[in-house]
């Protein structure tokens, strides 16, 4: 018999949801504000960093992944991983094209 019954349904309280909403709104304000400051190469990094943080919050709390089974976590991980392969390896080709021939 398996003990880890993943469907011990965890009900997330409205308080948590409200906190996340607040965090998301703050994140949105931050990202708009940051885009007006000239930080050079840091600009896109900050923008993407904030976006990733917001997305993670949504996935973990609104989508309940924090309270879900390992399988769900693995599924999310697999999606991100394959996405990274697609983006990463394609971009690698474009960047190395600029290096020219050896």
């Amino acid at each position: 018999m398996s003990e880890h019954q993943e469907h011990e349904h965890h009900i997330v309280s409205p308080k948590v949801y409200a906190t996340i909403l607040l965090a998301l709104l703050v994140g949105t304000a931050l990202t708009v504000w940051a885009s007006y400051i000239d930080l050079g190469i840091l600009n896109p990094i900050i923008a993407l960093g904030i976006a990733c943080t917001k997305a993670t919050l949504v996935v973990l709390f609104f989508m309940h992944v924090k309270y879900s089974s390992k399988l769900t976590k693995l599924t999310v991980g697999a999606g991100v991983f394959t996405f990274m392969i697609l983006v990463g390896m394609t971009l690698a080709d474009y960047f190395t094209r600029a290096w020219g021939r050896w």
Binding site: T31, I37, P44, A47, A51, A55, M63
Partner: peptide
């Protein structure tokens, strides 16, 4: 359905900075 809706939200969370906020200081 909630999962779907949140996913659509996440896409927008990325689209907004990528499309609107590329650079506002130049």
């Amino acid at each position: 359905f909630g999962l779907y809706w949140h996913f659509v939200d996440i896409i927008w969370i990325f689209l907004f900075p990528l499309l609107y906020l590329i650079s506002r200081h130049q």
